[in-house]
Structure formats: C-alpha cells, structure tokens
Nucleic acid binder design. Structure first.
Lengths: 206, 206, 206, 206
DNA sequence: AATGAATGAGTTTTCATTCAT
DNA sequence: AATGAATGAAAACTCATTCAT
C-alpha cells in the first residue's frame, strides 16, 4: 500500500548484477596476470566498460580484489556446513568429491585468492589459513575418532590431515593453474575413491 | 711456477659475487611482494645499492628474475642426479628427506619461482613443469616396478606420483610461504618416514 | 532530414584537433632543440598539457616525430601535383615561387624533418630523398627538353638539377634555420625571377 | 745544455695526440648519431678507451664537441688566406675546387658542426655564420668588381653570392651526409668548372 | 549511470660524471 | 694515465584515480 520497498530495490539489484559482472571479469584478469600486473584498463576491457565506470561500483582496484575474496569466502562456507559427520569411508569420498567440484567451479576466483595469499599475509590469514584450519580440524577429528576406534594406526592427526590436503591440492592445482581441464564429475568421483583408498589402505598388497 | 690463470679473473669473480648478492636481495624482495609489485627501488635498497647500479649488473628488472630462475634450475639438478635408483623403502625416505632439505635451503628463490610460474606460462613450463615431470617420472617408474613385482597393488602410476608430490608439497609449502619455520633435520627425517609409511601402508590397522 | 553522419564523429574530430595541437607544439620544440635533445616535458609544456596526457594521443615520443613527418609528407605532394608541365620560363618561376611559399609556411615542420634526416637514414630516405628525387626528375626532364630543343647548351641534366636545388635551398635555409624572416610574397617573386634569370642567362653581360 | 724544454714536452705531445684520437672518434660518433643522441659510452668505444678515461682529456661531453668545433674553425682559415684575389674565372674555379677538397677531407667534423649549428645559436653564429660571411664577402666583392668592370650584368651581389654558396653546398652535401662518396680530385675539378660556367654563362645557348 | 579526458605520483631505465685504485 | 664501479639526476613512460559532462 505504502511506498515501503523491499530492502533491495530493482536498482539495487541492477547494481549488484553489474558488480558481479565486474568481479567475474576482474577475477579472470587477476587469474591470468596476477593482481599487481593487472591494470584497471585490463579489467575494464574484460568487463566491456569504460575504465572510469569501474569507480562507480568499486572504490579502488584493491577494493575489487577484496570483493572477490569476500564473495568466495562466503561461498566456501557451504562445504563445511555440509560436512558435519565424516563418519565413514563414503563420507570421506563424498567430501573429496564435493570439494573438487566446488574448486572446479570457481577456478579464476580461487586462483586469484591463492596468488594474492602468496604475497599478502592479511589475505593469507583471513581467507586461506582460516579455511584450511577448518578443513584440517574436520579431518583431524575424523582421524582421532578412527584411531580411538582402533580402525587407524596411532598416527599424528595433524600430519595425516596435512598430507590429505596435499593430495587434494595435487589434484586441483593443475586445473586451477590452467594447464589441465577441470575434472569431469566422473573423474572427480574416481579421484575421490582412489585417494581415500590410498589414504586408508596404502598402496602395498596385503 | 706456471703463469696459468684460471678462466675467471679476480674481476670476473668480483662481478659474479656482486651479482649473487643482488640476486639474493632480489629474491627476498620478490618472495615478499611478488615480482610485479616489487620495484627496482626495493631491490636496490635490499641490496644496499643505488638503483642505477643494478643496471651495471643486469639489463633489466626482468633479467634479474630470469637470473634467479636460471640459477636455481641448475641447482635443482643435484636432486635428480642423486636419485638414480629409488629401489626400496629406504631410498624413498632418502629422496623425500633430501628434497625437503633442498627446498628448505632455497626458500626465497623457490617462493619467487612458484609465484611467477603462477602467472607466466613460459616460466611455468621452463622451470616448473619440466622439473615436476622429472620427479614424476622417477616416482612412476618406482611404482611400476613395485606393481610388477607384486609389492604394490595395481594402481595408476601417474596418479600415485601426483599424490605423492602433493604430500611432499603439503610439507614444504608452509615454510616456503613463511608461516612455518623450515623443518629441522630431525623433523625432515621424521616426515620422510611418516610419508613413506602412509604411502606404502596406509593408515588403517591391519 | 537524414540521420547520415559523416565518417568522423565529433569526438574523432576533437581528438584529431588535439593531435594537431600537440604536433604543432612538438615541431616547435623539435625545431628549436632537435628531436634527441627535446624532452617530453618540453613538448608537454609547449602544448600546455601534462606530460602523461601526451600518451593519450601518441604512443611514444618517437611516434610524435613520425606523425610530424607523415603529415608533411602528404602535404608536400601538392607541390608536385601542381607542377606537371614546367614548359617555359614562367612555369619555372612559378615553381620556384610556389615552393618557396610552401617551405615558408611549414618552417618548424621542415626544420624538424631536415634535422632528423641528418642523423637517421630511414627518415632521410623515406621523407627527403624520395622528395628530392621527384623534384630533381622534374628539373632534369625540363633540362633535357630544352637541350633537345636547342635552347640550352648540352649540359648534364643531373648536375643542372642539383645546382638548381642548391640555389633554392640557399634561399629558404636561413628562414628555416630561424636567422631570417620568411620571405614576403614580393620577396619570393623577386627571388624566383632572379634565380631563373641567373640559371638561364648567367650573370655575364652579353 | 740546461733543462730548458720546448713549450711542448713529450708528455704534452702525447696528451695532444690522445686528444686528437678522441676527437676523431667522437666526431665519427657525433656525425652518425648527432651530439644529443651520442653517449659518452659510444665515444669511449669508438676511441677504444674506458668511459672515465675521456674525462682525463676533456671536462665534459660538451667540451669534446667544442674542441671539435674549435679545431676545424682554425683549419678553415686556410681557405680564406689562400683566396685573396679571386680576380678571374680561373681563380673562381680554383676556389671552388679547393673548398670542395677541404670539405671532402673533414666530413665527420663538418657534419657534426652543421648538425649542432642547426639547433644551437651560439654554434651557428660562432662557427658557421662567421665563416659564411667571410666567404660571402669574398664572392660579393668579386661580383661588384665584375659589375663595375661591365663584365657582369648589374645584379645584387648578396643574392649572387648566396646562390653561388647554394650551388657549392648542393655538391658537398650528399657526401657530408654519407649518401655519396666524397668527390675524386677529377670530379671536383669538373664540378668547379661546370659551376663557374653555369654561373657566368648561364645554360642557354647564345 | 557512463565515460572521455587529464594527470600526479611513481616506475623502469639511461647516462654523464665522480672517485678510489 | 687508465678505468671499473657507483650513482644522482633526469628521461620516457605507466597507471590508478578524478572530474566534468
């Protein structure tokens, strides 16, 4: 009846959409050249906009980077909300599979984050270390439980978790870097099963 | 007695020494900020030289980067010359241990290489992919032999190698990135043994 | 009535105008100091612009020079289109007169071209030698015709042409160099007549 | 008997010789690239010396240029001392011939002077205008005399002189610029005769 | 909302010159 | 006397950002 509007007006949504477009374009550019070597001109070209138009949506070049980081930070929460249990072999496989999927679907964003985390401690801590700790905690808990239950040998959970994460990254890194196509769903599944098998059973015959 | 001179005169050596100093300083700077964000002023300050003096030793900023890459490329050959055999468990452990040691001793250089390889395809191919393929080939051969001998289950050697490399990098990466101290010799040995144990035996009780 | 637009939009024309302004300012500077000694700062000051603004219109300092050369190369075509015939004494006078006029009206440009041609073989060949050959050919043909017709003594046309060009330059050079005011129309006419008279009749009484 | 030495000791002469070598090398470089674009490194290389060694013989780069100018200024005096009379046709021919010879023998020096005079008023006035005026005066006097004697038509001596100088330069300029070999003695003689013939008789049949 | 034009601050690089040996 | 090494000053050029429209 009145002029009360929902919190997002059409215009707000329009602005949000444009911001998304810019972020997508920018993360492509950042992924290719790295943040420092990318110019605002590059970003504007990729977004098919005038250079100065960027400044109607973001305060600065760095602000664009930070928005990319924030956006994906929020998104990655979904992985961890999903993975409460991690009770058995199948849950492990599922976790690997799902994680591979998420990484595969956000390649330019994640590539950008990793590049920046490599040189910026704030970015590293806020956007990467936090996440890795979450993941690690999950895996460590699983390992501890299995050790307690006598299923696993008495290994150091922190080390086990670290190695598991290393295996995971060895699978996604080539695609992130752009030297390999992102894995198909079937490939992801196969990898997940193999990794869990290696991890649990080792590779020696018994 | 003789007047024979070594092929390098004192001056040549002096120049080489200065170049080394600049490279060391530059790799610190590149490691901290990344190549693109590092300025020649940064490098000059780190090397305690005037900015223009750099150009008496290198043709350009990029030439400094390339010299860093070249120098370490040569060095890393040592790892592979060492690892002909890889016949048994102990050889595997030794390889891991030695590799960890080399990485730990060249942190700023390797950090610089990896950062640049992340955005530059030439650098990636020339200085990283080549090396990873060498390493991978070594591990694959080992796996194939073990499978043939019935010691290993019939796994995909390429995947096994990839996962093994992932485990290796999970151990050195924090130190490379500067969030962890480089491992002590004892730590390296312990890691090497654990990794090989995981790899061969898995983590489940038998 | 129609919406037909000329191929050049207002903006295109605006850009062209600015480019012209910069070229005019730059040719003044180049004429005064020579290309190598002129700085982009000098040019920017002469054009009343910030130094970096130059680079919105030209790719490099050298690009500015080349634009000056190109522009005047095109212009000088007019002299030669005019001078098809060169049949008689009056046509000769007209050619001298018109040539003096064109040179007088483009002093900084031509001074710049000559200075650069003095040290750059490409510029010499592309922008000067070509033109001189055209002019020379014209004069040689005239001489040959006159010799055939028995009007001229049997002299070497190439030498005659060369000397005629030398006389021409002896008249414009001081103005080009800036040590003499450009000739007035009356002065040009008088020079043209004198030169032709000398050339044809010599200076001895008969 | 005593230790009285001539004003130039052996060492002085040694220094003078080295200075001459440097000047010769420098004028080659200046002739090729122009003063502004030539670097002290270029000069040192051409003189086969270390860059800093130049400064034992000259105070600055500009000082080298000035020495080149001075040296040749002195030399050119010889032309004018020779040409007192200029009484008749043969004297004119002799003057042209001798002048061509001198120019041909000092090409890099003169090329350097002309290039610098093109952009530097001091150099122009001190080293070029002065000389041209001397030459011009000589020719003007000759013309005036011939006019008085009724040999020449009553022409403007200044203009006649100017055109004569123009003819002269049309002959030496290509060699100065390096696009033509310097004229042989025979060539010089032939040119001198032709020019005088043109000048005096014109090119029309009588 | 979009952008062309302009630019200050800074970047890489050059180069004449100095100085210790 | 000769020069290698070092460098301050300045050059060409880049780029994120502002602003008027």
């Amino acid at each position: 009846m009145t002029n009360l509007k929902p919190p997002t007006t059409r215009r707000d949504r329009q602005i949000q959409r444009k911001r998304q477009e810019i972020l997508a374009a920018a993360s492509e550019v950042f992924a290719q050249k790295g943040y420092a070597a990318a110019t605002t001109k590059d970003i504007a070209n990729a977004a098919d906009l005038g250079e100065s138009t960027l400044y109607n949506y973001f305060e600065s070049k760095r602000d664009i980077l930070l928005a990319i980081l924030e956006e994906n930070h929020a998104l990655l929460d979904t992985v961890f909300q999903m993975t409460q249990g991690l009770a058995n072999r199948d849950a492990l496989i599922e976790l690997f599979d799902r994680s591979l999927e998420i990484f595969s679907g956000r390649i330019p964003f994640i590539r950008t984050i990793l590049a920046e985390a490599w040189v910026d401690n704030d970015v590293l801590n806020t956007y990467v270390v936090t996440r890795l700790k979450q993941a690690s905690r999950l895996i460590e808990d699983f390992i501890e439980n299995q050790v307690s239950a006598g299923v696993f040998r008495p290994i150091d959970p922190a080390l086990g978790s670290r190695l598991a994460l290393g295996m995971f990254f060895s699978l996604v890194l080539p695609a992130l870097r752009g030297v390999e196509a992102p894995p198909s769903p079937a490939q992801r599944r196969a990898w997940a099963e193999s990794v869990v098998s290696f991890l649990l059973d080792g590779i020696r015959t018994r």
